[in-house]
Design a protein around this nucleic acid. Structure first.
Length: 339
DNA sequence: AATCAGGATGTGT
DNA sequence: ACACATCCTGATT
């Protein structure tokens, strides 16, 4: 029953996106200062200098220092006023991988994103105990919603939403689209929605397809505004493959699909997994731990490791999906039906 | 030590 | 039923 997560175990939970003065210590009592209202602390963007070019370095440096102590502050800059993004919550933002227009390469983005989602998931457990609320937002009373709201604002340094969500129960909150979030809280409403999305997915251990998308949109937007594409907008490139793309369908992703996704983007994942012979479908897992970690993030299984991932691959043997190549080598597999 | 093979069993959809 | 996730024993590299 240990919550040992080999992939992320080297990081302490709760330190992500935490400012020192809000850091949750195990000893902290619940019901944070009910009387002391949300301090009028200003949440001006402090981490990097400018949102334009500073953020990429910002996230990267975050990524580097993160395993250390995480004692930095991520103050989310005010969401710039905009109205054209993310009409539907089901819409699926896709980051163009090739557009190496340079700020933050996708590999780093995915790395950070994976860790962000993972850590937010951990934070949820803490928050439940701290706030004495259930993990399922659908069960929240209006009071619980307010607790969650205040906690999330504090935790992630979002601009205070004030009474924008007063009187709302968990059910109604969950039913709201991101657009509605933004209407009620023009500053940071989208981020709140992204966080709620993670809560909703954590509840049922749902794979992080749409959640990751929401978070990606949020981060990407802050990195390079306007570089967002949507499935609906049929951007010529990348995902027209369709067959391998599972990120936009509601279907749970299969392991073989996931592996092909990674193989499809050598620029991002070539260090972890790559083709040895694409025509024959032979590929090699170069970094088993990283591939397993990514799989665990995608499936919301923090305890995923290569031992378990490889067991699932071996299940494919008799299904005729993946096999060992004729000349068996360690960490080398072959798709039976290469595209 | 890491990887590989495959049985047994549990879990969520 | 299905696709893993988890756990395990034993073999191989």
């Amino acid at each position: 029953m240990g919550s040992a997560s080999p992939g992320l175990s080297n990081v302490s939970p709760g330190c992500l996106l935490l400012s020192p003065d809000v850091a949750l210590r195990p000893g902290v009592a619940k019901a944070e200062e009910g009387a002391a209202g949300p301090e009028k602390r200003e949440w001006s963007p402090s981490p990097p200098a400018t949102p334009e070019q500073g953020l990429s370095a910002f996230y990267l440096s975050y990524f580097n220092m993160y395993p250390e102590d995480g004692s930095w502050v991520a103050k989310v800059p005010a969401a710039s006023a905009r109205e054209e993004l993310l009409e539907e919550p089901e819409q699926c933002p896709v980051i163009d991988s090739q557009a190496s227009g340079g700020s933050l390469d996708e590999h780093s983005l995915e790395q950070v994103q994976s860790m962000v989602v993972g850590e937010v998931l951990k934070d949820i457990e803490t928050a439940c105990k701290l706030l004495n609320i259930t993990a399922d937002p659908g069960d929240w009373s209006p009071g619980n919603v307010q607790k969650w709201l205040l906690w999330t604002e504090h935790q992630y340094r979002l601009p205070p939403a004030g009474k924008a969500f007063q009187e709302l129960g968990g059910k109604e909150l969950c039913a709201m689209t991101e657009e509605q979030f933004r209407q009620r809280a023009p500053l940071g409403g989208d981020v709140l929605h992204a966080h709620l999305d993670i809560w909703k997915s954590a509840r049922k251990r749902k794979p992080l397809n749409t959640v990751t998308a929401a978070l990606t949109a949020w981060m990407k937007e802050r990195t390079s505004p306007g570089a967002l594409h949507y499935c609906a907008s049929t951007s010529e490139e990348g995902w027209t493959d369709g067959e391998v793309d599972s990120s936009c369908s509601g279907q749970p992703i299969h392991l073989w699909q996931f592996l092909k996704e990674l193989l499809l983007k050598p620029h991002s994942y070539g260090r972890f997994i790559r083709w040895l012979n694409k025509e024959k479908g032979i590929f090699k897992i170069e970094d088993s731990a990283q591939v397993a970690r990514l799989w665990g993030v995608r499936k919301n299984r923090p305890a995923m490791n290569y031992d378990k991932l490889s067991r699932s691959i071996r299940q494919y043997y008799k299904k005729g999906i993946i096999r060992k190549p004729d000349i068996s080598q360690r960490l080398v597999y072959q798709f039976v039906h290469p595209v």
